[in-house]
Design a protein around this nucleic acid. Structure first.
Length: 304
DNA sequence: TATCCAAGGTAAGTT
DNA sequence: AACTTACCTTGGATA
């Protein structure tokens, strides 16, 4: 594999790899030491993370393996290709985090969240794996959602031998569409099994394409994604935020709902659409999704 | 050791 | 359009 390093001094603002990859945004990376999501807040800071990336329009033409860790003020990487453009894309290294944090509204809770995990970036997952991840996320704990994606890759994905090791690609829409509901239930997807299968079938058949939502205005894009089975407003917002670059998207999950109840009660407008607009506005509009993700990680990881 | 409960919701059926 | 209910599975809490 090729190797290299990206000095963090090249970025706009700080960077925290562990917070970025273990904050419940992406479920597609695996931690090489097997200690993903463990509360070893001693530091865990220099662990290797690895993933297999599908072809991405304008970034990679083939499937590639990437490993990355944060050490000595740099992102060290190993990859089957030059990983600089790939990591820049996946980890949003071009985001000006200082500017984003500075533009955030003056709010005591949000200030604490930004302060606690400063350096956490939003991710940009490949669309189909992201869509499946969040279909699986319904009523699940973060660590189990991650386990489900690993199981999908191990059980149904292609093996990629590299340097004597075997990596597993996330299954393609065609591969998942070819499985039965029972086979998906066998790896403990539960009632999400038919949702994943049907959605994979829709994508494989060209009936709809999650990436196509990227060209639509935000609320139309959310509406578009809900055509997939198992995708409601919340899951659609997650895909828009964590894959398609809609930084204004605010997924209304259990944590943000309790934050609304406790801290922004006037933003509760009953339905999803209206509440979404109100909290998006309260969290700064354009980068409201960044604020949401900091709040989510802050509230969830301090066991409030 | 046994039981209960909630976990980054959604779809389908009622009112 | 707003409100109920069922849905797989399991780690962690409670008895």
């Amino acid at each position: 594999m090729e190797t290299g390093a990206i000095p963090l001094s090249d970025l706009h603002g700080p960077f925290d790899l562990q917070a970025t990859l273990e904050s419940g945004q992406s479920y597609l990376w695996d931690r090489a030491d097997g200690r993903m999501y463990e509360r070893t807040d001693a530091h865990g800071g220099d662990a290797w993370y690895e993933t297999v990336v599908p072809p991405i329009e304008g970034v990679t033409e083939r499937r590639e393996v990437v490993r990355v860790r944060q050490a000595d003020g740099a992102l060290e990487w190993e990859s089957t290709t030059d990983a600089v453009p790939l990591l820049t894309h996946l980890l949003r290294l071009d985001d000006d985090l200082d500017a984003i944090a500075d533009a955030a509204p003056d709010d005591p809770l949000l200030d604490r969240a930004y302060e606690a995990y400063r350096g956490m970036r939003l991710v940009r997952d490949p669309p189909f794996p992201c869509l499946v991840s969040f279909i699986c996320s319904a009523q699940m704990r973060v660590s189990r959602i991650h386990g489900m994606q690993l199981a999908l890759a191990r059980t149904f994905g292609d093996a990629l031998p590299v340097d004597g090791r075997e990596f597993r690609a996330f299954p393609t829409p065609e591969q998942l569409a070819a499985r039965t509901e029972a086979e998906l239930r066998d790896i403990r997807l539960g009632y999400r099994a038919p949702y994943v299968r049907r959605t994979a079938e829709m994508v494989a058949a060209g009936e709809a394409d999650p990436a196509a939502a990227a060209t639509l205005p935000y609320e139309e894009a959310r509406e578009y994604l809900t055509r997939f089975v198992g995708v409601g407003d919340k899951v659609a917002d997650c895909v828009l935020l964590f894959s398609l670059g809609f930084l204004e998207a605010v997924p209304l999950d259990t944590w943000i709902k309790s934050a609304i109840a406790d801290h922004y009660p006037d933003c509760d407008r009953g339905g999803y659409d209206a509440t979404s607009r109100a909290i998006r506005d309260r969290l700064g509009g354009r980068y409201a999704g960044y604020a949401q993700t900091y709040l989510f990680h802050y509230l969830r990881s301090r066991g409030a």
